[in-house]
């Protein structure tokens, strides 16, 4: 455990650059947007929109961070792999470092968003702080869940890339990995449309209608129209479970490849 914690600390050091750059870029953008927005008396609103967008982009944060971290390790594979702990623990240390960095980045952007909304005068709807906190929590949770799922996909693809890279050059390996990625996601997309997928995932229904209604009411938006468009407001626990299983399979497949197939 201590070895793993030290490894995670090393990963954080290794990830200093991919951690700092987005934050600096974000603040530069905030300054720029606030400056341009202030000319139209729209600064807070502009910053809020920017923050909201940046938060959304963070579904790719873990994959981005891991790309950097594993890319840096690619030249030091003999160093990274020469370790008694398993491939899954090696990868998990990187994921943990990525999650910590993402949490901090998320907090910075979320606080900026909250402050911007608080200062904004031109928001077309009233929203209570408690509702906002609730929506924020739920949104944040899903942001992290999707990011983790993307991270597992990325780790899996990276290992495929490393295996291909044994035989082919970097560019061709990348192209093949990309083709593999398109095919895999295509197949997965097709699968989610199928009846088997529905059978596998449509259980453990959770009704979120009450929640949505409350949010829409507090925003003074027409709930009826939304429900008419989106259909019954139900999410399935089965879907979460299924996604979790897929994520775990991808992760352990990546770890297995790292233990048994990847070469330095």
């Amino acid at each position: 455990m201590n070895a793993w914690l030290s490894l995670t600390k090393k990963e954080l050091r290794l990830g200093t650059t991919p951690f700092i750059i987005p934050i600096i870029a974000f603040f530069l953008l905030v300054a720029l947007v606030a400056y341009i927005g202030s000319r139209f008396d729209f600064a807070s609103e502009a910053v809020a929109i920017l923050s909201f967008t940046v938060i959304g982009i963070q579904v790719f944060y873990l994959a981005y961070y891991l790309l950097f971290s594993l890319g840096a390790e690619k030249r030091k594979m003999h160093l990274w792999l020469h370790n008694p702990i398993s491939g899954s623990a090696l990868l998990l240390a990187k994921v943990a470092a990525a999650l910590i960095s993402m949490a901090l980045t998320f907090m910075i952007t979320a606080v900026t968003l909250a402050v911007a909304i608080g200062m904004a005068e031109n928001i077309p709807f009233e929203i209570s702080w408690s509702t906002m906190a609730q929506v924020g929590m739920l949104g944040g949770l899903h942001l992290f869940l999707v990011a983790i799922s993307f991270a597992a996909w990325f780790l899996f693809l990276w290992m495929v890339f490393l295996l291909l890279n044994r035989t082919f050059g970097t560019f061709i390996s990348f192209v093949f990995t990309f083709i593999f990625f398109i095919t895999a996601t295509g197949a997965y997309g097709w699968f989610t449309e199928s009846a088997i997928y529905d059978a596998l995932t449509m259980w453990g229904a959770i009704n979120i209608e009450v929640f949505v209604t409350e949010v829409f009411m507090s925003m003074d938006l027409p709930v009826g129209e939304f429900t008419a468009q989106a259909g019954p407001l139900t999410i399935y626990f089965g879907q979460y479970f299924f996604e979790a299983v897929v994520t775990l399979i991808l992760f352990f497949a990546a770890a297995w490849m790292l233990d048994r197939k990847v070469e330095v």
């Binding site: 090393k10 050091r13 290794l14 003999h78 160093l79 792999l81 020469h82 370790n83 008694p84 233990d259």
Partner: peptide, 21 residues
């Protein structure tokens, strides 16, 4: 496999270390 590192100390011919240390 690589986990044999528990019993093996390996010195690589490569000259790569973590530069921030």
């Amino acid at each position: 496999d690589h986990r044999i590192a528990s019993q093996v100390s390996y010195l690589s011919e490569l000259d790569e270390y973590y530069g921030f240390y």
